[in-house]
Design a protein around this nucleic acid. Structure first.
Length: 628
RNA sequence: GCCAGCGUAGCUCAGUGGUAGAGCAGCUGAUUCGUAAUCAGCAGGUCAAGGGUUCAACCCCCUUCGCUGGCUCCA
């Protein structure tokens, strides 16, 4: 064997051995990057290669572990349920899944059995081996094994592909690009999580398969951390907290996906709305209000009938069709059209806390995060083309400002033209470019999300990140050259000629329902003082302080502090416990000492407390209001 | 909409083919107490709804509604 030299993790060495694993010292390596390509450790070495170790704990390493775990699961499933036909089984952000075609579905007990079998297979430390096969040979191979889905996948590969790789471990063979961990024993911690239906190739016209979700990690500790995270997420679930904190409810009698705000939720939402109204007035927006139903004809013009009809509800009045609005733009356009506009009037910014109604499929409804009726903090900006970038950047600034107030970090992406859409390619290009230019000008990074724009224009989506690292879509900025044309709106330019304005559709919080749901989970129900429905519970130690407690309460109320009084004949510990469970920011304790001194004792959520004058406390609460 | 699971008191949950239970919350009384649950008593349910099987159904079967986890879709 000739002597060869390779570069391993930046160090040039003479290779001893013939495989990648022979030159890697790292015991936790699960795979390697060979000249930049992810490869198995069993890949043969060649002279001059650059090899980088992929450690089990790295992001790529964990992904490979999960992918291998999916194969191990498929092996276990095939052993226990020979009739199950494997389809695909990739790693995902947080774990892996494998889809099977099987007439019966998997039960929770089946999952336990499969998981137990997986543990055994991992214990056997079976090697993963990779083979290359010609396409026709592979098709014959999987046909012979009775695996039609694999045959379909291979058959659909383009003509430029003439070989495929297959991986084998134990009794299981799968079509797979790899790479995989060297042996099953490298999957140190695995857990099956749930079963779900999933369409073959994600198309609802196709057959429904059985998907098993699981996750795997490089260590038992990492798995435990993940399970703790799931537990934490469950504790923060806004549906649970919404009930416990009496913020909102749903009623079987009212219908699914229809939020009913209870007094505390109503207060919370009103506070957010008040904040937004003030914010928008200050940023040069006008507040407008449109009707909830508009003539069908108008939705024809806008293109909704053609592109959005499935999401809309319709009603009939005086034998005429009316569409219940799924978006707020139409009345705003009508306001624009209500008189001749001059270039001097632009930009016009119309803001509406508009309730929209959309026909969401029954299966997608989810608490406040996905409802059939919700209220957007919506605005439409009509401007001249040369004002466009400036307006977009102003919105981006506003998003930054608002997210800072609520304490969210965020990232952005641009969504481009979807299949179902209207308008010319030039318009779309122009609109997409405007969005990109605005972000570039601000020097902000963004991803591209191909084909995910609105039917009338591309958009910038803002994904906010919550306290436990999950991201949520809230703000969106959409650039629209289409509706101005469809509604034939214009302004008179300095040249005395008619010009077409551009329209920006934008929301900052998005759906107030969704945003409130996210807020609940982000803060785990312990809202910042300024939006807490109840800012303080005033509690007396005994009846002896009842009069003074009422005086304190009256003064706080008179100074806009949102309080509740707990004057029940209960021990102070009991009152504190309840207020804590309700996540109230401040508890105001009043005993004989406070009564004599004319003070109050303010206890924070943290348990810290301080005796102070009533005015001091009023100042603390009022100072919690964000400055905008 | 599709696949799977679930639906018992206001809430969290036990329960069995033979006419339904606990804790908390609620109500009443006692206790007047300094930082996460004072004690006692009382009351509370067409077991999601409708149909079927059975001598008998909360339990088994069917249908509908709702919820949960996914798929598809999306603010």
């Amino acid at each position: 064997m000739p002597q060869i030299t390779v570069t391993v993790d930046g160090r040039s060495i003479a290779a001893e051995g013939s495989l990648v694993k022979d030159v890697i010292k790292n015991k936790r390596a699960v795979a390697a990057r060979v000249d930049g390509t992810l490869s198995d450790l069993t890949t043969p070495l060649a002279n001059g290669q650059t090899i980088e170790t992929v450690d089990a704990d790295s992001e790529e390493g964990v992904r490979i572990i999960r992918h291998s775990a999916a194969h191990i699961m498929a092996e276990a499933v095939k052993e226990l349920f020979p009739d199950a036909k494997p389809t695909i089984g990739p790693a995902t952000e947080e774990g892996f899944y494998y889809d099977f075609d099987r007439s019966e579905s998997f039960s929770a007990e089946d999952l336990e059995k499969i998981e137990a079998r997986m543990e055994e297979l991992i214990g056997k430390n079976e090697p993963f081996t990779c083979k290359t096969m010609g396409k026709d040979e592979a098709i014959a191979f999987f046909k012979d094994k009775g695996e039609p889905y694999k045959v379909e996948i291979i058959s659909d590969l383009g003509d430029e592909v003439d070989t495929v790789t297959i991986y084998e471990q134990g009794s299981f063979v799968d079509l797979c690009r790899g790479p995989h961990v060297p042996t099953t024993g490298h999957v140190k911690a695995v857990k099956l999580l749930s079963v779900a239906g999933a369409y073959w190739r994600g198309d609802e016209k196709n057959k429904m398969l059985q998907r098993i979700y699981g996750t795997a990690f490089s260590s038992a500790k990492a798995l435990k951390e993940y399970l703790n995270f799931l537990e934490e997420a469950r504790k923060r679930d806004h549906r649970k907290l919404g009930k416990e904190l009496e913020l909102f409810m749903f009623s079987e009698d009212a219908g699914p996906g229809l939020v009913i705000y209870m007094p505390k939720g109503g207060k919370l939402r009103t506070l957010i709305e008040d904040f937004e109204k003030k914010l928008h007035f200050r940023r040069g927006y006008d507040i407008v209000l449109g009707p909830n139903i508009l003539r069908g004809r108008l939705w024809e013009i806008s293109g909704h009938m053609e592109n959005y009809k499935d999401n809309m509800y319709f009603t009939e009045l005086d034998e005429q069709v009316y569409g219940i609005k799924p978006m707020n733009c139409l009345s705003h356009i009508l306001i624009y059209k209500s008189k001749v506009r001059s270039y001097r009037d632009l930009p016009l910014r119309y803001f509406e806390l508009g309730s929209v109604t959309r026909n969401e499929k029954s299966g997608v409804i989810h608490g406040l995060l996905r409802t059939r009726q919700f209220t957007q903090d919506d605005a439409h900006i009509f401007c001249s083309p040369d004002q466009l970038i400036e307006e977009i950047t102003a919105i981006i600034d506003m998003v930054a400002e608002v997210m800072a107030v609520f304490g969210f970090s965020y990232s952005m992406e641009i969504s481009t033209r979807p299949e179902q859409s209207m308008g010319s390619d030039e318009m779309w290009e122009q609109a997409t470019k405007a969005l990109k230019d605005a972000l570039d000008k601000k020097g902000l990074p963004y991803d591209i999300n191909e084909g995910d724009g609105a039917f009338y224009g591309p958009k910038i989506d803002v994904k906010i990140k919550d306290a436990i690292g999950r991201s949520w879509q809230c703000a969106t900025i959409q650039c629209d050259f289409n509706l101005p044309e469809r509604f034939d709106i214009h302004y008179i330019g300095a040249d005395g000629e008619k010009h077409r304005p551009v329209m920006l559709h934008r929301v900052i919080l998005g759906s107030l329902e969704r945003f409130i749901g996210v807020l609940i989970e982000h803060f785990a129900g312990a809202f910042p003082v300024w939006i807490s429905p109840v800012q303080a519970v005033i509690m007396n130690i005994t009846d002896a302080q009842a009069d003074y407690t009422e005086q304190v309460a009256a003064k706080l109320r008179a100074n806009d502090v949102r309080i509740e009084v707990d004057a029940r004949n209960e021990k102070i510990g009991y009152k504190i416990r309840e207020a804590r469970l309700q996540k109230v920011p401040y508890m105001v304790v009043i005993g004989d000492r406070e009564k004599e001194e004319g003070t109050i004792t303010v206890r924070e959520r943290s348990g810290d407390q301080k005796t102070m004058g009533i005015d001091d406390f009023i100042k603390i609460v009022n100072d919690a209001q964000p400055v905008i």
